[in-house]
């Protein structure tokens, strides 16, 4: 268990990180808790690693004008302990892996890696988060619905760095519920719901190639269906690209999506007060 050889650069500013990336290519390294395991397994061999882990300006949670900004290098443990982030986000962060993983893994690394079994993409999708990206040429903002584009794929360009994610500070009642793989704790099914007045936004992940909104559930909820009926509508939102493996078949996960959407909706509703 040794990662393949690579050239190592350590960035001391965002500008330097971007310049190093343009010059040498390779991969950024944040907490390393997705990149190092996949390198250990020889599933990745980037040749060059650019360590952004010491860019302290990208670490931390702040509130500004009704939004919460989560720096890319903020660890899962920090999010789980934060009273400033919407409840679904703290709840999801607290369910990631285990305490050791939460001490090293970062929000930016989690969403950039875009593992279909990750938790945060689902919550950010339901919250309608905004992703703040930077290249040497400038910055741009991408909505969650456009950021996650496929299995391990995002809108991030080759030489682009994620700086932060922003979410509404008070979106309403929010919740995240997941069916975990018993060994890794990764999500086999994850469901996030945000309930505000008579409307709800709902997303699922874990069983789909990337996190997705659930328009049928949202429409059923807005039409006055209760928790049970609205959750059952998730079956209309799931296409034929449901993931299955030795831990849980696609069919089982589809059924579990109904259960976990129901739990997320019920919890979000009770928190909406």
């Amino acid at each position: 268990m040794y990662p393949p050889k690579f050239e190592y650069y350590r960035a001391s500013s965002v500008a330097e990180a971007l310049a190093l990336k343009q010059q040498h290519g390779g991969k950024f390294l944040a907490g390393g808790h997705s990149l190092i395991p996949v390198m250990n397994l020889r599933l990745a061999d980037p040749g060059v690693v650019i360590d952004i882990g010491r860019l302290s300006g990208l670490k931390g949670i702040s509130r500004e004008n009704g939004t919460v900004r989560i720096g890319a290098l903020t660890t899962h443990a920090m999010v789980a302990a934060s009273a400033d982030v919407p409840q679904a986000l703290a709840e999801a962060a607290a369910l990631i892996g285990d305490p050791q993983v939460r001490n090293r893994g970062t929000v930016g690394g989690n969403v950039s890696h875009a593992d279909p079994a990750s938790d945060l993409p689902t919550v950010f999708t339901a919250l309608g988060a905004t992703f703040h990206l930077q290249t040497a040429a400038g910055t741009r903002q991408v909505a969650a619905a456009d950021f996650f584009t496929g299995l391990f794929e995002t809108a991030l360009g080759e030489d682009e760095l994620l700086l932060a994610v922003t979410v509404p500070a008070n979106p309403g009642g929010s919740a995240y519920k997941k069916l975990s793989n018993p060994a890794s704790r990764y999500a086999m099914v994850g469901a996030a719901a945000v309930v505000s007045g008579s409307s709800a936004t709902v997303a699922v992940g874990g069983l789909t190639p990337h996190a997705r909104r659930c328009p049928s559930v949202e429409a059923a909820w807005a039409g006055g269906s209760g928790v049970e009926a609205a959750a059952a509508a998730v079956l209309n939102d799931l296409g034929d690209d449901i993931l299955g493996d030795i831990h849980a078949s696609a069919d089982y996960r589809r059924q579990m999506a109904v259960v976990y959407v129901k739990r997320a909706l019920a919890a979000a509703q009770s928190r909406a007060g």
Binding site: M1, P3, Y8, R10, L29, G32, H33, I36, P37, N40, D51, G53, A77, P99, Q100, V101, N103, R104
Partner: peptide, 15 residues
């Protein structure tokens, strides 16, 4: 590592 429990098989020495 600096007072936090971490997995040393998923951490580079340079980190």
């Amino acid at each position: 590592l600096d007072g936090l429990a971490v997995k040393s098989c998923a951490t580079l020495t340079v980190q």
